[in-house]
Design a protein around this nucleic acid. Sequence first.
DNA 1: TTGACATAATTAGCTGGCTAATTATAATTC
DNA 2: GAATTATAATTAGCCAGCTAATTATGTCAA
Lengths: 176, 176
Amino acid sequence: MLQLRDLPSKAVLDKFSARYPEADVSAVSSFLHLLRVASDLSLALDACLSQHGLLQGRWWVLILLMREEHGISLPSVLAEKAGVSRATMTGLIDGLERNGLVERIFDKDDRRRVSIRLTAAGQEKLDQVMPDYYTRLRQCMAAVSEEERDLFNGILVKLNAGITAFDASGNRHPDT
Amino acid sequence: MLQLRDLPSKAVLDKFSARYPEADVSAVSSFLHLLRVASDLSLALDACLSQHGLLQGRWWVLILLMREEHGISLPSVLAEKAGVSRATMTGLIDGLERNGLVERIFDKDDRRRVSIRLTAAGQEKLDQVMPDYYTRLRQCMAAVSEEERDLFNGILVKLNAGITAFDASGNRHPDT
DNA sequence: TTGACATAATTAGCTGGCTAATTATAATTC
DNA sequence: GAATTATAATTAGCCAGCTAATTATGTCAA
């Protein structure tokens, strides 16, 4: 997501803000810090999952299925919830089906539809992965108190609201 | 990075933590919230840059060059600082060179080496993009006070330290 | 001075995202 | 009830990452 490893020093930020007076140095600094840490956490999660032969995309599908009453959902619904295109979901399901973790069930009444069901093997896989994931995550967050977590969430809510401000305005550009 | 759009409700988290007692519900919740917001911020940044005909990878390269005294660096150094492989950096430089934003300068003394220089057009591009980026970011962070930013950074530092805990331990897995 | 190793950049080929087009089926409307 | 429109999933092809292999060059020690 953010690959940049060499975050700007105070000196660099000052240099840039001298040329670009619009810059809010502490905003830039916090923003980059956030992206850096989030990106590293995501990589750590990937590393954890890969020890179980999974990647994030497939893992989320298994979790979404487990959330359902009977472990069943539709590709279009899964795509929506997982935040990927339907085409990508087709690929994820292909992979999971190859490994026997989910199965396709063709609908007799509406032959356009296909249901996806978590198999026993899929549930077993989750039963291996989730305790490992939860244990690691618990340790990772151990140093952050409940109060800090609440504060943290509150700030994230504000940032999230600010994204509309980021998206809006500015509409130049042509070439490249 | 994190595509998952359907974050777990309290009920879902409780259901999962009943099956997996290792789960720390508030930790999971904060973790996912962090990844979700960071991911959306990154997408907003992409949207901003694409209005200027850039993508994050190339944009970071321009910025890294601008940080240098004479706007000059080496592909290997840029790859290191940008956090991408050298092969990827070759591709990024190819694209930037095609658009005339950087140029390759072949070293006469050590013919393995190539220097990359920010061109005048590259600097102009930055002079268009950066004010737009800084303005949007300022607005996005406007609701977060300096105190909150400090607090936020402090928590990020703790989380970052916790990543080692996340990476460590657990070493099962075979197939798939 | 030459053989082994080290270093720099690039190329080749893989993967998992994406969008757009396609296939199949259902629903609606004239 | 035939034609149009809508919906579901898939296929085809693009792109930007990656690793591993390759090409080219330099360095050092016997």
